[in-house]
Design a protein around this nucleic acid. Structure first.
Lengths: 339, 339
DNA sequence: TATCAACACGAAACCGTTTTCGTTTGATCT
DNA sequence: AGATCAAACGAAAACGGTTTCGTGTTGATA
């Protein structure tokens, strides 16, 4: 086991001072050619690499960014992470991932752990519990300490920071419009409670599209589930008691499960009933029939979030201007709607 | 913007020495009740939290663990991360995730970035390119520096470290046996090239089950795809030219895609043809019909990996004993096989 | 009254860098 | 010859903690 070599080791070995070694390795003009070559050769030979921790302490910059998300076993979030990684890595940053598991307390604990010097900034999507409570003090504390934060997807306007979202309302609007165009009249919406910022926006888009087409919004056709978790019973009951010819769901899982239910009732998709979901993931691509969805462009979202964060981190000026980037969702047409 | 407060700040404010503050905050017996109370109250008031970086530098322990995986947009890997996070967080560790994207070079770069003090140990699954090249020098260098490594799922025996795998051979064996029991005779295998450690083991299990049942291994029924990526054409060609009554696939995606193909040919699953896949993910659960799979217990795998790593990190002794933990796969029976 | 232990605290080293500010040479200029 | 200057290097502070070892004070004891 050969331990890591330090500047001090090189200095002792070559009988020069630590500062000389440090400067030589940075190719400083201060040091003579001879000495530099000697030191550099020695360093290469022993595979010297500066200690990141020491540099972080000195520079007060860690080159780490903290990502706090509610869950990782969700296709959308993994694509976002991928986008963040891609951009961050290219800029020499590492990504520390923490899961809040939709819990307010875990979100707070994770942020506190990271905020004490471990990271240069946060990229976050709020846990459902946080959005439900409406308590954003942990975020405010962090921003007041001067640590930049970028919120994506599940955001709040109560915190002063950069934000990246897709236009959820537009997404739902486009999807609903599409269904209307295809002659659907009884369009259901399966969503979650309004405390989730995204669900609220999507419901608005759905309502807007219906109103514009002079279709009544039949409240009984809106199923609001209490959480993002699957609730097979509620969805089953809904289809037992409601007759609809199209369904818009706020995620893939609700959609795929619903399709299975109506198929078991003998209905044909998309002849008898159409489906559109949110999130363009594996489930949509490989469902039978394959799913028409509102694509959220998670990877792009991740890249942009990382870019905004790193820009803030590396900018000298302390100006407090925050931007909200709104991405356009797109409709990916597959076989769960009429072509 | 209120900057973080340090020991020095407290010391100055309270007119004591830094060491006194440090000791007081650790409730040292050395400090009098009065002074301790005063310092602790002050620290609480100003929300003092020690700087992680400074502590890391002093202790030579970062409480970070590096996770390097080939991809994150795969259900199996996300479940593993979840397991790692769960255990690591409970032990006060943070998780730095790096993606190799199946690239040897990225794997090397990521490891080098982290190995210079950023982490206390690695949890890794090898990229396909690394397994193909068979070059494990980056791993050997790290272990020689005394940084503990735990390999999971995609492993190699050329590196001395702890390992966690599922018994892939047994998984494939159990699945194939199941198909044979149900009277299937013409069982296909859709896999990837043998350089992937898991694919190799699974192919062996498949062969073993067939041999034991006195069924010939018809090599033409084994489709080896060149990578983990979907190759729609190869799979399509395969089903066009081969008549089989059961299929075992090494992942969910191959399985679901194959099912779609044969359904389009008018075959009924599971009456005419059965399917079994690997990985118990969303795709399997919500496929139509739902998929019978070999569950890999990713979350458990993650937890065990984290446990093995942290045990090594926190153990005083430098003993070089390495263990390989083999998890038992289980068959999750759903509707793509006869019940 | 001298001695001594216990108490309460401070000085300083250390972790591994970076960086500023000397200091020592030898050469050049007047 | 003495002053000046640049080149080449070292000493030391700093980042924010922890920890060892001293040290001054106090009260009790002989």
């Amino acid at each position: 086991m050969k331990a890591k070599i330090t500047l001090k080791d090189i200095a002792r070995e070559l009988e020069v001072s630590i500062s000389t070694v440090s400067k030589a390795l940075k190719n400083s003009e201060e040091i003579s050619r001879d000495t530099k070559e000697k030191i550099q050769a020695f360093a290469k030979l022993y595979n010297y690499k500066p200690n990141n921790i020491a540099i972080s302490l000195k520079n007060k910059r860690t080159k780490n960014i903290g990502v706090v998300i509610p869950a990782i076993v969700h296709h959308f979030f993994t694509t976002v992470i991928r986008g963040i990684e891609k951009y961050a890595n290219a800029k020499g940053y590492n990504v520390i991932v923490c899961l809040s598991e939709e819990s307010f307390d875990k979100e707070v604990i994770n942020m506190e752990m990271l905020a004490n010097g471990s990271i240069d900034g946060f990229i976050m999507s709020l846990s459902s519990e946080t959005q439900q409570k409406g308590d954003y003090n942990h975020l405010k504390e962090v921003t007041e300490q001067g640590i930049p934060v970028v919120l994506f997807d599940r955001i709040t306007n109560e915190v002063n920071c950069d934000k990246v979202i897709i236009d959820d309302q537009l997404g739902a609007y486009l999807a609903t419009k599409k269904l209307i165009e295809q002659g659907r009249k009884k369009i259901a919406l399966i969503t979650t409670d309004d405390y989730l910022s995204v669900s609220k926006a999507r419901t608005q888009g759905y309502r807007k599209a219906l109103s514009e087409s002079a279709l009544d919004v039949d409240e009984s056709r809106i199923l609001k589930l209490s959480s993002m978790e699957m609730d097979e019973k509620s969805i089953g009951d809904f289809f037992d008691t409601h007759e609809v010819d199209a369904v818009l769901c706020v995620n893939e899982i609700f959609t795929v499960f619903s399709m299975k239910l109506v198929q078991e009732k003998g209905l044909n998709i998309p002849k008898d009933i159409s489906f559109i979901g949110f999130t363009d993931g594996l489930l949509s691509k490989y469902a039978n029939p394959s799913l028409t969805v509102v694509a959220q462009h998670g990877e792009k979202m991740g890249e942009i979030s990382a870019q905004m964060l790193i820009d803030k981190v590396e900018s000298e000026n302390e100006e407090e201007t925050f931007h909200t980037k709104i991405l356009e969702p797109t409709l990916v047409i597959r076989d769960s709607t009429i072509n």
